[in-house]
Design a protein around this nucleic acid. Structure first.
Lengths: 116, 116
DNA sequence: TTGACATATTCCTATATAGGAATGTAATGT
DNA sequence: ACATTACATTCCTATATAGGAATATGTCAA
């Protein structure tokens, strides 16, 4: 089997760095495609294709205005990823505590466990 | 250009649902590969390959114990993703506020803006 | 209608999988 | 040494890009 489609879910869509850039750029205000092209530094067709992927998974919303299309990040769609990563928060806090403890033991001259 | 390697960064590594499952499973305790195989329901070689990807991007740590290898999630490596998604938190709060406002206006019988 | 502008879509190709099958390798018991 | 257990790695194939080039579509202006 090949890798899952970039349009299968937000996790796959944001795996591409350019798309993360675009989402950041579109987080605050609506922008037209030509502005995104300038900001990201990719050619227009590539930007449109990335926007297509982001739109299919609901990470951006579009609105037409004359010949322009105004895109904006749909932050709500990022929330599930935030929540998934949040489930690990208590674990990285624990890890930091263990590092701190180890440093304190070293300070006290007790010596390390030697676990590589 | 093809898609970036799954080993290029954590974002690409967690795009695969099975790898997210594995990270969740390994978040609390060390587990040996055979336990992961049972828990995830994939065959052993596939699990080993996923673990290899996760290891290369630093999302898991391994330790040998006799013939077993004990894997554990390295939560610290998930933190950058948590922080990236967190930059959108204020925007989804705004969105929720706007939805709420709209609902309140509708309740008051003022009517919507009609913006589709 | 014709032209210009803004954006989307199609075609093409090199690349990177994900999983299945088969095999390689390290550690332990006898 | 040999069988066994526990994993990792290699080989194979169908699939899905990402970007570049070219083209199509949609909108407004005269």
């Amino acid at each position: 089997m090949a890798r899952a489609a970039t349009t299968s879910d937000p996790f796959n869509a944001v795996a591409e760095p350019r798309r993360r850039q675009i989402l950041t750029f579109l987080a605050g205000d609506e922008r037209q495609v030509s502005e995104i092209v300038v900001a990201i530094g990719l050619d227009q067709p590539s930007v449109s294709k990335h926007l297509g992927v982001l739109r299919r998974v609901g990470l951006v919303r579009v609105r037409r205005n004359g010949r322009h299309r105004l895109y904006r990040t749909n932050a709500e769609a990022i929330r599930p990823m935030h929540e998934w990563t949040a489930t690990f928060e208590r674990f990285w806090r624990h890890q930091l505590d263990r590092v701190k403890e180890r440093a304190e033991r070293a300070q006290a001259g007790i010596g390390g466990s030697g676990q590589r």
